[in-house]
Design a binder for these strands. Structure first.
Length: 476
RNA sequence: CGGGCUGUGGCUCAGUUUGGCUAGAGCGCUUGGUUUGGGACCAAGAGGUCGUGAGUUCGAAUCUCACCAGCCCGACCA
């Protein structure tokens, strides 16, 4: 049932695919580039949804649903948007046995259809701000795909908003970026950097793109969420106009922001190890698993009784499971639940019951195996889960810091990127051709300019000006 | 789309060089039994158009041609 996982050190990519399939998060589907998200993986996604959906609603957004099919002409309306997306569009040309008069595009993102509707709904300054989110699937025909990180169809959430002023749109985009960062750190336990994308990496049609960037265990960067200021690009292209307080027609300022099932890839690659997944307690579908140990027929009833009683007590506050399969040895179960990343395992056998205790074993390996008095289980479980959650974040933060190098010259930048995996920071003067040069020489890209910019210094690519602090790294 | 590799039970593969009897193994699966504190064991059983099509041949998993699919590397990307 469970095969050996390729060690991370031997081949990170293989490790990643092995883990996903063996932990039953997802499986390949018959259509190239698409995947099936299995219940265990989907349950993780539901955790992500529940957490974020609550935050979106707390900040005044409402969910809606827009259709999958978009008239081809809509995509053409915003010049940069067309250019950015046309290579990866899937188009429906036939339906109902006939060729369609106008082809339908399967949404790669919903800016166009949503803004078309906004144009109908926004007539007065009293209609603003318009704060809409949708949970949906989107399709981008990718040449090279990877489970969760890049598949032709994926699940995501896309927020779309319209505001009276540029300032309001800016603070909306930043607010959502903060929510993403807060989610990554507090729920997923992954330390992230907030930044602004260079023009070269910006979303097609945006005036500013903000992102959160995380470091995976192979020291590559992963863009984990983006939030865009769209300025008036779309409101002009789609003729969204409202009458302001002075009865003058205005185009609103807009934002859009999204995170996808890619976050699951982030969790896998940020916390996993050679034993398998390591899930943050706040998102783990199963926070703890109870494993009865039954060495003989005599002990069977008392062990199962104790386990069931404990389960009844704990299930009120925790996502907890009993593994009472009797055709599988305990050792096998230990390995299997470790593979699945369950944060804490509780073993219960006759020896424990004699002492009125149980054995705790943490997935992160802290403390080894620990005997816990049975009437303290609930409290200790909470303490341990909290501790595991914060340790994951701490570990992730230290890992990123330990693998980030600052450089002061362009030569050093190139050298470091070529010799050392990880993030390389430097002061940089925005310049697309310099950026492309670095990419050609090192395969690394400018991930972002740090949002929390510390000081300034001469740019490594132009010593006559002050640069902005930037991160370069190889990325997913 | 270019370069490299691979298609044989659910999975990993052997068999292909040198065509030959009923296509094998391990794992997994099913049933029964014994087991259970770090990946248990015994017994019986189910499961295969050998990627697809054509060709050569008395005979093709094996040789030839075409096609299809997948993986890795490059251009594209949440």
């Amino acid at each position: 049932m469970v095969e050996k996982i390729t060690p991370m050190s031997k081949d990170f990519n293989e490790w990643y695919t092995d883990i996903i399939q063996q932990a039953q998060l997802a499986d390949y589907s018959p259509v190239k580039g698409t995947m099936v998200i299995r219940p265990y993986g989907y349950s993780l996604w539901e955790g992500v949804q529940a957490y974020l959906d609550k935050k979106f609603k707390e900040t005044g957004h409402e969910n809606a649903y827009f259709p999958l099919f978009i008239p081809n002409s809509f995509i053409q309306k915003e010049a940069e948007h067309v250019e950015g997306f046309s290579p990866e569009l899937a188009t429906v040309t036939h339906a109902g046995g006939k060729e369609l008069e106008e082809p339908l595009v399967v949404r790669p993102t919903s800016e166009t259809i949503i803004n078309h509707m906004f144009a109908k709904w926004i007539k007065s300054h009293r209609d603003l701000p318009m704060l809409i989110n949708q949970w949906a699937n989107v399709v981008r025909w990718e040449m090279r795909t990877r489970l969760f990180l890049r598949t032709s169809e994926f699940l995501w959430q896309e927020g779309h908003t319209a505001h009276k002023t540029q300032e309001e749109a800016t603070s909306e985009a930043l607010q959502m970026l903060d929510i993403y960062a807060e989610f990554a750190e507090n729920a997923a336990g992954v330390s992230v950097v907030k930044g602004i994308k260079s023009a070269n990496e910006r979303f097609a049609g945006a005036t500013t793109t903000y992102s959160i960037e995380a470091m995976m265990k192979d020291k590559k960067a992963l863009q984990a969420g983006t939030s865009h200021e769209l300025g008036q690009n779309f409101s002009k292209a789609f003729e969204i106009q409202y009458s302001d307080e002075n009865n003058e027609l205005q185009h609103p300022f807009q934002t859009s922001w999204g995170v996808s099932t890619r976050l699951i890839g982030m969790i896998i690659m940020a916390h996993g190890d050679d034993k398998g997944l390591q899930l943050p307690p706040k998102l783990a579908p199963t926070q703890s698993v109870l494993i009865p140990i039954i060495p003989n027929e005599d002990s069977k009833s008392v062990v199962l009784e104790t386990v069931n009683k404990l389960h009844e007590e704990l299930r009120e506050s925790y996502r907890i499971k009993i593994d009472d399969r009797d055709n599988i040895s305990p050792g096998f179960k230990f390995n299997e639940w470790e593979l699945k990343g369950v944060p804490l395992r509780i073993e219960i056998g006759p020896k424990d019951i004699e002492k009125n205790s149980v054995v705790f074993s943490r997935r992160d390996g802290v403390d080894g195996k620990n005997s816990v008095s049975i009437n303290e289980v609930s409290q200790k479980l909470k303490d341990n889960l909290d501790d595991i959650q914060s340790n994951l974040l701490e570990t992730s933060k230290n890992f990123r810091k330990d693998n980030t190098i600052h450089v002061d010259s362009k030569a050093e930048l190139i050298d470091t990127l070529n010799s050392t995996p990880g993030f390389v920071t430097c002061y940089w003067d925005e310049n697309t051709s310099d950026e492309i040069e670095i990419k050609d020489l090192t395969k690394a890209t400018l991930r972002c300019y740090l949002l929390d910019n510390e000081g300034s210094a001469k740019a490594v690519n132009n010593e006559s000006v002050e640069g902005k602090k930037a991160i370069f790294s190889k990325a997913y």
